[in-house]
Amino acid sequence: MTAVITPPAAKPQTPAKRAGRRSGIAPPWLFAAPALVVYALVMLYPSIVGAGSAFTDWSGVGEQRSFVGLANFQQLIHDDQALGAIRNTLLLTAAIVVVQTGLGLLLALGVHTTIKSRMILRVIFFAPMVVSPVMVAFLWKYVYNPAPDAGLNAALNAVGLGALRQDWLGNPSIAIWSVAFTVIWQCAGYSMVIFLAGLEGVPQELHESAMVDGAGTAARFRHITWPLLAPALTINVMLSTVGGLTLFTQIIAMTNGGPGYATDTLSTVLYKQAFVFGKFGYSTAVALVLALFVAAVSFIQLAYLRSRETAA
């Protein structure tokens, strides 16, 4: 990613003769060895072994497993449930990326002003981020109680928006957006903080000289703030994309993929295949596809957003 968001304190005092001498005298390999050993042991080795079972029909328990070649991947192409899950994964991710980033930006702009409550508001908006996702899921499951006199429905009614009351998690057409909303509620503060760091880096003088030139708030945002926020936007989009694509805990704890298959995503499908259906081989095939998916999407996004940054 691009090097930008660094608080002033973190900026190294750059001596003049920096160029060309970045690497210096290299430390010995031994420095990387302990990390490499642990990483290989905990991530690389198990993932490779796990990926191997994508080509078998292993149930997840017992000794019986046969090599089945690409059969699991062929099955995936014809699996309505997995295809529906891919669609849901994309919808959920798109909703999270757009709304969370947008809301994060608005919140950041709102608290990056002279309003008196700005510090406490930052704390409030960010607080959900430090709470365990599984507990957030419990909380929202309670809030989404479909009874007209409970939770969110009661609150809507109390402020005169009774017409908006819904069966939040039970209506197959709404459930996925309810899940997305919970995630956005939890993470919007995170996006806000990243944008805030970007805003801190926008020089005040630019705004002042623009004001002297008679530029309005909107014009100043468009021509000064927005271009300079490009790196923060890149980070926000990348983080929320990966988060959305691999979202798991909140879905399992709130809807378990239901009603029907309405909130099943690649993560929940591969979990169910492994632990509920006893199809471990197939499950790892889905996991591999998910990994490639995440890699491809991140790569494309990064390439695009970076070109946008340099253009700006």
């Binding site: 109680n145 479909p146 007209p148 209506n171």
Partner: peptide
């Protein structure tokens, strides 16, 4: 009850 799909076992 209304909305059985959104109602939990506990409710």
């Amino acid at each position: 009850n209304d909305n059985p799909n959104g109602t939990t076992y506990e409710q």
